[in-house]
Computed example of a mutant assay.
Amino acid sequence: MNEMDIYTFGKILSEIKIEDIEQSEHFIERDRVRLRMGLENIYVFINGNTPVGILKQSAGKFKVMYEYSKEYDLSIIFSLRQKNPVKLVLVTCLKEFSRNRMR
């Protein structure tokens, strides 16, 4: 897969449809233990909130951070499965202290 920059990934993420998102087994387990949101609520959350940060982790894999509460950010790791048509995989999710992001 070709390299993708953060700007392009952000644009894809802002236009993604729920049917273009898959969940990895790891994500399903982490969501069950950590968040209990489910795919539909995650989708509503990412479409209703603007990321506070996007980090490129490797080719086609991005960590997207959203403000979750006053104290926590919700970080979701996405992997780009294919570009055309776009398919994203939810890899994992976790809550992290907001202060870890703010310097």
Rank of each mutant, 00 (worst) to 15 (best):
N2K: 12
N2M: 10
D5K: 04
I6E: 11
I6K: 12
I6S: 14
Y7Q: 15
T8V: 14
T8C: 08
T8K: 10
F9H: 07
G10F: 00
K11V: 07
K11L: 14
I12K: 04
E15N: 07
E15A: 12
I16N: 02
I16E: 00
K17E: 10
I18C: 06
E19D: 14
D20Q: 14
D20C: 05
I21T: 04
I21P: 01
F27E: 05
F27L: 03
F27Y: 12
F27N: 01
I28H: 01
I28M: 07
E29T: 13
E29G: 02
R30T: 05
R30A: 08
D31Y: 07
R32Q: 08
V33E: 10
R34Y: 08
R34G: 05
R34M: 10
R34I: 10
L35T: 11
R36Y: 08
R36Q: 12
R36T: 06
R36G: 15
R36S: 15
M37C: 01
M37A: 00
G38N: 00
G38H: 01
L39D: 00
L39G: 03
E40A: 11
E40T: 02
N41S: 14
I42S: 02
I42H: 13
I42D: 01
Y43S: 11
Y43T: 04
V44R: 13
F45Y: 14
F45S: 03
F45A: 06
I46V: 12
N47G: 08
N47E: 00
G48R: 03
N49P: 06
N49D: 06
N49L: 14
N49Q: 07
N49Y: 08
T50R: 11
P51S: 08
V52T: 15
V52P: 04
G53K: 12
I54S: 11
L55T: 13
L55D: 15
L55Q: 11
K56S: 09
K56H: 04
K56N: 09
K56V: 02
K56I: 02
Q57F: 03
Q57V: 13
S58K: 12
S58F: 04
A59M: 14
A59W: 03
G60Q: 10
G60Y: 14
G60F: 13
G60S: 11
K61D: 05
F62I: 03
E67N: 12
E67M: 09
Y68L: 02
S69Y: 07
K70F: 04
K70G: 15
E71N: 11
E71V: 12
Y72W: 10
Y72H: 15
D73W: 00
D73A: 15
L74A: 12
S75L: 09
I76P: 03
I76Y: 05
F78C: 02
F78G: 05
S79R: 13
L80Q: 08
L80W: 06
R81K: 13
R81T: 06
R81F: 10
P85E: 07
P85Y: 10
P85M: 07
K87V: 11
V89E: 13
V89I: 12
L90K: 01
V91P: 02
V91T: 09
C93F: 00
C93Y: 00
L94R: 03
K95S: 08
K95H: 04
K95P: 02
K95W: 01
E96N: 09
E96T: 14
F97N: 13
F97S: 08
S98V: 02
S98Q: 07
R99E: 12
R99T: 07
R101A: 11
R101Y: 14
M102H: 03
M102I: 06
